[in-house]
Design a protein around this nucleic acid. Structure first.
Lengths: 263, 263
DNA sequence: ATGTCTTTGTGAACGCGTGCACAAAGATAG
DNA sequence: CTATCTTTGTGCACGCGTTCACAAAGACAT
């Protein structure tokens, strides 16, 4: 998901596969629920079902962390919660700064799941001077001018970008310059960062478009199954015919191409 | 990312790899930017740089759609925008329903990038009777009781779940029963759905935990590089020592395990 | 028309992730 | 102590995705 991911192919000391790391939070969530119900142990089969994964995959994932299970019994819930929490670095507190306090930024600041597992909203930053000092989720918004100092003073190493796309790269650069080495990007932009900085992106628009692709394919298959004439995918949407620009003597800038994108 | 993904191994008619589909929106965004600047053609190298991917990968991705490039020149921007839009199903309008109008749901309803590319917020649904009728982003919130009718009347096939985790599965079931076949889940829960329904999830908490993992690893490597004694990962965070529950005669429910999770 | 130069499209090799299937380990009963 | 039963941990094979490297294709100059 991360765009500017640094893969660190050789330096990887404790070789935990990326795919496994991405599933650990899932296991942790399921285990926490079991813990709250005071369930002492759980088998790989049960836990896998709760996390929505294959049990063999779960066992292999845990094998990367060490042998924490007991054959014939299963895994000790509390112990596993502790081990995964430690592996994910959740035994320490992570101060997080949110930059861009619009609709989404404010929603994230108010999001409960934030404060819970080891993460603490340490600062809210916005470029709008009118926002400065306004409390959001009980925290006063600070101005972008002080970004460097805010990051340094609070020891922030994880930044969340919820700015408009145009400002994202600039904010990213400033965060990195101030010492942030992990960025969660909600802005629909490709961020470029130096080596050693991790970027993960959350993109509503992309997710919807992926769903739309499958949705369209499902509709097409359904139509085909019902005997409706589906000549080719080119005729799929019944849209204006695509006028291919001739390779040589390409059409001028008159732009009579079909205007596909609504905005 | 989807948990209940139906992989449809054989039925896949036009074999476009899932990884490629996930990148098409990225290409489309870069191409749209070029289009707005009236750039007529672009090479795979340039476009790949703009999208943050390898150029060979981009060419292979496009090869699944067909041969839309011209050797020695590159790709026609407008034509490619059209082809990708059609492939993703963005040449038609997708009415979307958002269920759970809290902080996040309201933020998404107000999100501009929603309405742009072919997606239209057709309905906002919430279980709180006090919310019913209240306009959010210019749309009146409707009550959960009418969910079935709302979905049917508006021909909604894509649902967005932004409810608290406890309500997510129930809402999901009702959406599916009403005819929704694609779900974007923001609730931190594993959704189980029947075959033929696609689920994609967006999980802030998981993303942060993945970042924390890498952040911790970076800090550990840095410390090791500076000559600080790092005995073992077990001593990494300097936390309370993990007391392994003895397999047999496991400790009683007195719960003197380290309380790792803050909440 | 011919040659050069650019860029695409793809064959092939490689590596990662997944899932099966089973041996080893330990619990539990007799 | 022995036998049986449950469940883990993992060797192995397979398939997908990525990347390299290059031949083919076309633009463009002469």
């Amino acid at each position: 998901m991360a765009t500017g991911r640094t893969h660190r192919p050789a330096t990887r000391s404790r070789g935990i596969p990326e795919a496994t790391v991405a599933r650990l939070p899932l296991y942790l969530r399921a285990l926490t629920a079991l813990s709250e119900r005071s369930v002492p142990t759980v088998s790989s089969e049960e836990l896998a079902a709760a996390a929505g994964v294959n049990s063999a995959k779960l066992r292999k994932d845990f094998s990367y962390l060490g042998s924490y299970g007991t054959r014939g019994v299963g895994y000790d819930v509390e112990y596993l919660v502790y081990q995964i929490s430690r592996e994910l670095g959740l035994t320490q507190d992570w101060p997080v700064a949110i930059v861009g306090i619009g609709n989404l930024g404010a929603a994230l600041a108010n999001y409960g799941g934030f404060a819970s597992r080891g993460f603490r909203v340490a600062a809210l930053i916005d470029a709008d001077p009118a926002m400065t000092g306004t409390p959001v989720a009980g925290i006063a918004v600070q101005h972008t001018d002080d970004l460097d100092r805010i990051i340094s003073d609070n020891g922030v190493s994880i930044g969340v970008i919820t700015t408009p796309p145009g400002a994202a790269q600039q904010v990213c650069d400033r965060l990195v310059a101030a010492g942030v080495t992990s960025i969660l990007n909600f802005a629909p932009t490709v961020l470029s960062v130096p080596d050693g900085v991790d970027v993960r992106k959350v993109d509503l628009s992309i997710e919807l478009q992926i769903l739309a692709f499958h949705e369209q394919r499902k509709a097409g298959e359904e139509a085909a199954a019902e005997g409706v004439a589906v000549v080719d995918a080119d005729a799929g949407a019944g849209q204006a015919p695509p006028v291919r620009a001739t390779p040589t003597g390409r059409k001028g800038p008159d732009g009579d191409m079909p205007a596909v994108m609504p905005a």
